[in-house]
Design a protein around this nucleic acid. Structure first.
Length: 866
DNA sequence: GCGGACTGCTTACCT
DNA sequence: ACAGGTAAGCAGTCCGCG
């Protein structure tokens, strides 16, 4: 590492805002090169190197499959801004000027968007990030008001250099330069069509499109999993103590390394096999040698993957290595308070990324909605889970241990390779949009992604990044009253559905309603209730707020872009039959990445944890959403269309002529300026009469069930099965006459199920309700819900119960009411309770198709059952 | 002392 | 640490009842 070996003393510095031991770079194991000329290189990460006192870029060289280091050589330094003029700083703030980390002062001009005017700010520049903030005597603590002082240095560096993580760079004569890729003509044409009228918007859009359309390389990577000896079964070894031996480490890489490293043990008598199904097994007499080999291998990879490595695997290895006498500089792991870094590459903990709510819902289509474990996520996404053990890890023989450990590492790797490397593609695209380094991106939620994206745009334009308290002071309150107690403002409209069964239903909806509203109405923290007198007449319908008519709101513009790119460009391209399968797939991934941002873009402004929190912006968004939908309903009614139901951004139209639908769509486009599209066409829909609760069969014969009890996760399996049979029967209904026949089938299915229940023919686990604990058991202080009661019983019997777990319980007779399934017997079951649950589940469906549930069994028959 | 009416808590869902 | 709206079941409380 050229020119990188000045300080080896152990002072601390700020990396990701955490205190991190310095001098942890592993010189003797791996030396990352800082070449004078290289490229193309993909920017994976930016960190602050305490060793060198500079920003350090970790770039990936796809041709060598290696990490390349580049240290800042532009003299960039940490800083913050204040409104105290330099003279006053010099006279009244000597503590700052005499601070050991103080470097110098500059005067800079910034645009204050809240006030819509240019302001002169004093920029206090320091020698290291900790001197600005993060320590007790940091400079920002001596100032009454400071701006941009809480932005992590590595992110500040990204903003100032306008770096795009996930994009390609080259190094020329030691200088870092972005690569450029010619934008395809058809994309340029699309952009011209959208923004041709506005030169500034057009140019800006080309920048975004070029970034998103740049090639996406595969990244060489290795997954790691460790097993630790445990003298008592079922206890997880404490990583910060690291008292027990590391007995197995498995490695699985994208370039063919399939290895298990096992520690030879006296307590295992079995034969030392050299190979399991797909991996080589290597034995070590000495644990230190084993760990050294692991370190050597992982430090040759640009990307190291774990599942929960932040908390366990890397954490354990680090402390264990210290215990075994490694010197810090021999360990290619650096621990921060909340996560683990590897050197020289980048560590990604898939547990944290796949736990991310936005990833779960939008990107992975809710395939693993209640999954928190590697086993559950892998089973849902890959169809392969962990190996199920019959005995404790410590009791496994060499083969069993090797197979078990390797499976974990291997499915960890496969979580990043399935779907044609979907994970890598998504990661790179999300980095490009959010401007976050890979480590930050995979460890934070979508609100942090949006925050960083907007901050980046502020800095790029010379906007002062506002302090949350300033936004709140100027635009804090809301005026509408939410329907739900405890909420801050009024949300969406839901129309009471007309109960019954309706054939030929067309659903129209606004594509991305809220982002469209934000774009169309110029909603942004600075444009809402702006300081101009002449804008006050530009009212938000139904609210006492006005919106700026003179300036384009920054976040409105960005959200508008992302919306347009998804709706107008990438979604259509992903379905364009003229394109190759690969191209369509890439465009599909881009639209998916955009979707994640778009879907959260309204909500963040109503979340008080978001630094640009601005309740009136969120309130205006929903108000304008209501305005759009209610005017569309009125128009539809005027046209003689029958609106059966609607929720937030959709309308269900009964047997409409296609002419009238087209007329309504163009009306919305012209009069509201928001695009209404045909979303779904049903052969029929059955409404139970409750909101957010219906069943329909689409024209392509697929079944669409929303909100019905039979679909809910906590519903006992036997009721779900019954419900599925009912649904299947209904899928075959084409006409009213079919319906009559179906009723007989339904009667029979229901009778069978009730009979089976009464005869106790359902096994216990099919009778179990499955309800999640959303918090720790001790935190339920107001009431004791049934699943909590069951969980507490389990706890009494020695089970370890924590937040997030799903409790399986059954309803039993007697005053106890419930028991966890593990402790119950079949003869305790309260059949009456289950019967009424069947009733409510089926009632929702049957009432919609005009069948009385009581009739279906007949009063006398029910009596005879119980 | 008991039961019905009511409120509030909790979870899972919809957009 | 994105939002609000809705359904459903149950826990707990209040009130009336000569």
């Amino acid at each position: 590492m050229k020119g990188v070996n000045k300080n080896t003393n152990n002072k601390t510095s700020e990396v990701y805002g955490e205190e991190v031991e310095e001098s942890t770079i592993v010189r003797n194991i791996y030396t990352a090169e800082a070449p004078r000329d290289a490229g193309p290189l993909l920017l994976l990460s930016v960190v602050y190197s305490g060793d060198v006192g500079k920003a350090l870029l970790k770039l990936y060289d796809p041709s060598a499959g290696k990490i390349v280091y580049w240290y800042d050589n532009t003299g960039h330094k940490p800083y913050c801004l204040t409104d105290v003029p330099p003279e006053e700083l010099a006279s009244n703030y000597t503590r700052i000027l005499e601070h050991r980390g103080f470097d110098h002062i500059e005067v800079v001009e910034k645009y204050d968007a809240l006030l819509d005017k240019k302001v002169a700010m004093t920029k206090i520049v320091a020698r290291d990030p900790l001197s600005i903030g993060g320590a007790r005597d940091s400079i920002r603590n001596f100032l009454l008001r400071s701006w941009e002082a809480k932005i992590r240095y590595h992110l500040c560096y990204i903003y100032d250099r306008e770096l795009i993580p996930g994009f390609f760079y080259k190094i020329e004569g030691g200088k870092l330069k972005p690569m450029s890729f010619p934008l395809k003509k058809d994309l340029k044409d699309l952009a011209r069509k959208l923004y041709g009228h506005d030169e500034l918007l057009f140019k800006e859009s080309l920048t975004w499109l070029a970034i998103m359309n740049a090639p996406i390389p595969d990244i060489r990577r290795i997954a790691l999993d460790i097993e630790v000896y445990s003298p008592t079964p079922n206890t997880i070894p404490n990583p910060s103590e690291a008292l027990q031996k590391v007995i197995a480490v498995a490695l699985s890489s994208s370039d063919g390394v399939h290895k298990v490293l096992l520690l030879e043990r006296k307590d295992i008598k079995s034969e030392k096999i050299r190979k399991i199904n797909s991996a080589e097994v290597v034995y070590f007499e000495d644990e230190k040698e084993l760990i050294k080999t692991v370190f050597k291998i992982i430090s040759t990879y640009p990307l190291v993957l774990t599942f929960n490595g932040d908390n366990f695997d890397l954490n354990y290895l680090y402390h264990r290595a210290l215990k075994l006498g490694f010197r810090r500089e021999e360990i290619p792991i650096v621990l921060a308070r909340n996560f683990a870094m590897v050197i020289p590459g980048v560590h990604i903990d898939l547990y944290r990324f796949f736990e991310n709510h936005a990833m779960r819902i939008y990107a992975f289509k809710n395939k693993y909605r209640d999954a928190r474990t590697l086993d559950a996520i892998a089973t849902a996404l890959l169809g392969i889970g962990k190996i199920q053990l019959e005995k404790p890890i410590t009791k496994l023989d060499y083969r069993e241990l090797a197979e078990y450990c390797f499976r974990d590492a291997d499915i960890t790797l496969k979580l990043t390779t399935f779907g044609n490397n979907l994970f890598i593609k998504l990661l790179i695209l999300l980095m490009r949009i959010s401007k976050l380094p890979a480590e930050d991106l995979t460890r934070s939620g979508v609100s942090n992604w949006i925050k960083n994206m907007i901050y980046f745009e502020h800095r790029k334009r010379g906007y002062l990044i506002p302090e949350p308290e300033d936004i709140r002071k100027l635009k804090g309150q809301t005026t509408t009253k939410a329907i739900i107690k405890g909420k801050k403002y009024l949300g969406a409209i839901v129309i009471d559905p007309l109960p019954g069964i309706f054939f030929n239903v067309v659903v129209v909806d606004f594509a991305s309603l809220y982002p469209s509203v934000v774009k169309k109405w110029n909603l942004s923290y600075e444009t809402l209730n702006c300081p101009h007198e002449e804008c006050k007449s530009n009212k938000v319908p139904g609210l006492p707020y006005w919106v700026c008519t003179k300036k384009r709101g920054l976040s409105s513009m960005i959200i508008g872009f992302l919306r347009d790119f998804r709706v107008e460009i990438y979604k259509p391209l992903s379905k364009d039959s003229r394109l190759s399968k690969e191209e369509k797939e890439t465009y599909e991934t881009i639209q998916l990445a955009l979707k994640v941002f778009i879907n959260a873009s309204y909500g963040v402004f109503g979340a008080d944890t978001f630094p640009l929190y601005c309740p009136p912006v969120a309130e205006s968004t929903t108000a304008l959403g209501r305005y759009a939908i209610s005017n569309t309903i009125r128009k539809a009614n005027e046209m003689g269309l029958v609106v059966l139901y609607g929720d937030t951004d959709s309308l269900f139209l009964w047997n409409p002529s296609s002419d009238k639908v087209s007329e309504l769509l163009s009306w919305a486009h012209n009069e509201l300026g928001i695009d209404l599209d045909i979303d779904k066409e049903y052969r029929y829909v059955a409404f139970s009469g409750r909101k957010k609760n219906y069943l329909g069969v689409l024209k392509d014969n697929s079944l669409d069930v929303k909100g019905l009890v039979g679909k809910k996760r906590h519903t006992p399996e036997f009721i779900k099965e019954l419900f599925n049979e009912v649904s299947k029967t209904l899928t075959g209904v084409y006409t009213i006459e079919d319906l009559e026949k179906a009723k007989n089938t339904l009667r029979e299915i229901t009778r069978q199920s009730v009979l089976k229940l009464r005869r106790r023919k359902y096994p216990l686990d099919k009778l179990a309700f499955r309800v999640a604990l959303t918090k720790e058991l001790t935190e339920y202080t107001k009431t004791t819900p049934q699943h909590v009661k069951a969980a507490r019983l389990l706890q009494k019997y020695g089970f370890h119960i924590e937040a997030g777990e799903i409790i399986n319980f059954v309803k039993i007779k007697g005053s106890l009411n419930v028991k966890p399934v593990q402790l119950a017997r079949i003869d305790e079951i309260d059949s009456e309770k289950y019967f009424s649950y069947i009733e409510t589940t089926l009632r929702q469906v049957l009432e919609a198709i005009g069948v009385n549930f009581d009739e279906i069994l007949g009063e006398s028959q029910i009596d005879s059952f119980f």
